[in-house]
């Protein structure tokens, strides 16, 4: 089954328009790690994530994943508007032909874990942006993935909701021992959530810094978190100046 490790080696990708999105991109994420892929908009980090998930084929290079149990959370909630929260979050289990009763139980539990107990039969249009994102997260968790890939999942939310969801994600990661690869353009978000930050530079996208963050970042304003922010900012500035 594997433990959720993923590794990209010498990945290059050119888009049909001719833009070189990624060139010789290499990084690996160890089992149980919470890695943030940080970079400015348009640096190819989402492309890298889709390649890591196997949704996009690279032009060159190899992707090694020791598991196919992947959860994926998009920037938008990406829910089926015609289905209630339970049916939406149950989709991975339905596609894998899990028996309906068991699938309902597991999905209801996943919804409860993201704080949506009691909203099983709410339709997406009845939910707030943050709640929709929670359904999306519950859907990713319902299939009990080893590797969770997130593509700027909280970028469209307000700061209060974003922080609450970040706290939940951190808790879920600790409880489940998942491997997380989290694409973001937020220095503060990565400094608090991630155990490791991979800084990407644009055109063509490649990794320019690989920072392991020390423990002790208990809150967003803890000295260790602020210190991590300084290090990440410095690395990002170097990447952009190059």
């Amino acid at each position: 089954m594997g433990n959720g490790a993923v590794s990209l080696s010498q990945i290059s990708k050119r888009f049909p328009g001719g833009t070189q999105a990624l060139r010789d991109l290499s990084f690996s994420v160890a089992p149980g790690e919470f890695a943030a892929l940080l970079g400015p908009s348009g640096c190819g980090k989402s492309t890298a994530l889709r390649i890591a998930a196997g949704l996009l084929a690279p032009d060159a290079g190899t992707v090694t994943r020791d598991t196919n149990d992947i959860g994926f959370v998009f920037q938008d909630p990406t829910l089926m508007p015609w289905a209630d929260a339970l049916t939406n979050a149950r989709l991975p289990l339905d596609l894998k032909h899990v028996a309906r009763g068991e699938a309902n139980d597991r999905t209801a539990a996943a919804l409860k874990r993201v704080g949506l107990g009691g909203f099983e039969h709410a339709y997406p249009r009845e939910l707030s942006g943050g709640m929709k994102m929670r359904v999306s997260l519950a859907r990713a968790l319902a299939a009990q993935p080893k590797l969770l890939l997130l593509d700027e999942p909280f970028a469209a939310l307000d700061e209060i909701t974003r922080n609450a969801l970040g706290d939940d994600l951190l808790r879920l990661w600790r409880e489940d021992g998942l491997t997380v690869l989290f694409v973001t353009h937020s220095v503060s978000e990565s400094s608090f959530l991630a155990s490791r930050v991979l800084v990407m530079s644009p055109r063509p996208g490649s990794i320019t810094a690989d920072l392991a963050l020390p423990p002790g970042r208990d809150s967003r304003l803890a000295p260790a978190t602020i210190d991590a922010q300084r290090r990440i900012s410095a690395a990002l500035n170097t990447a952009l100046a190059a």
Partner: peptide
């Protein structure tokens, strides 16, 4: 149909028939 939803079904190894039935047809309603 929402391309991301289609990608999601691919991620979970859905057959074309499953994608049609669960995503494309309800969306086309």
């Amino acid at each position: 149909a929402d391309f991301n939803l289609i990608d999601l079904t691919r991620l979970y190894g859905a057959s074309r028939l499953q994608t049609l039935w669960r995503i494309r047809l309800p969306g086309a309603l």
